[in-house]
């Protein structure tokens, strides 16, 4: 946008164009900022899932799964750190709804994880990967981005199917590594889409 001038006389067409231009610029900046969060959580998910897989594989002890609780402990301060640097970018309706979808995902996953620890009745990886794909798919629908919608569907449905076929729970962790990579790619797609 050119430098705004308070006293410039605008025609009706110019006024509408200005509204459109400013809205688009602001919308792009807000949604592009969302991409950073996908990349951050994707990297964290990839690193943690690989780390837990390796530790579980080497020691044979599933206790390493408690390291999943490190995800919010590391992730939330990092989110605050990158938010401080982004020049106070506000949220619009779409970015707010996407945040709520992922907040709901976290609540569901934490609840299922705790229930599973105490009962052992739930096929944990299958449910979590299905939810991960579902949240990814909903994000894609909100952003009107087909590659994100399709990758969410493949991750959720394909991941759940793969989890059912995988022989050990330790191997199922690799599905979350794939999930993490998909989140990183999603973040990059968002950054590119709203460049």
């Amino acid at each position: 946008m050119e430098k705004t001038n308070e006293n410039k006389e605008m025609t009706a067409q110019e006024s509408l164009s200005l509204i459109n231009e400013v809205l688009n610029k602001s919308r792009k900046s807000i949604l592009r900022n969302n991409g950073k969060h996908f990349i951050l959580w994707g990297v964290l998910l990839t690193v943690l899932s690989l780390g837990i897989y390796e530790l579980w594989h080497i020691t044979g002890n599933p206790i390493w799964n408690l390291l999943w609780f490190a995800m919010p402990i590391i992730g939330i301060p990092l989110v605050k750190l990158i938010s401080r640097k982004d020049d106070a970018i506000p949220q619009n309706v779409i970015s707010k709804q996407i945040s709520k979808v992922w907040l709901a995902y976290c609540v569901f996953v934490t609840s299922i994880f705790v229930i599973s620890i105490f009962t052992g009745l739930i096929e944990l990886s299958l449910v979590i990967v299905l939810l991960l794909g579902f949240a990814e798919c909903i994000s894609g629908i909100m952003l009107k981005n087909w590659p994100i919608i399709i990758s969410g569907f493949i991750l959720g449905v394909g991941g759940a199917f793969a989890a059912a076929l995988m022989p050990t729970a330790a191997e199922q962790l690799l599905l979350f590594t794939i999930g993490g990579v998909i989140l990183v790619v999603t973040g990059l797609i968002i950054k590119f889409q709203y460049k």
């Binding site: 050119e2 705004t4 001038n5 200005l18 400013v22 602001s26 020049d87 506000p90 949220q91």
Partner: peptide, 29 residues
């Protein structure tokens, strides 16, 4: 019906609230 005020209102119509620094950056003022 003023370019800068209209730009500010267009941004604020879309978000819950916005900081001065964000408005300045977006309107290039």
């Amino acid at each position: 019906h003023s370019e800068l005020r209209l730009a500010v209102m267009s941004i604020l119509a879309e978000v819950e609230s916005a900081e001065f620094s964000y408005l300045r950056k977006q309107t290039d003022s």
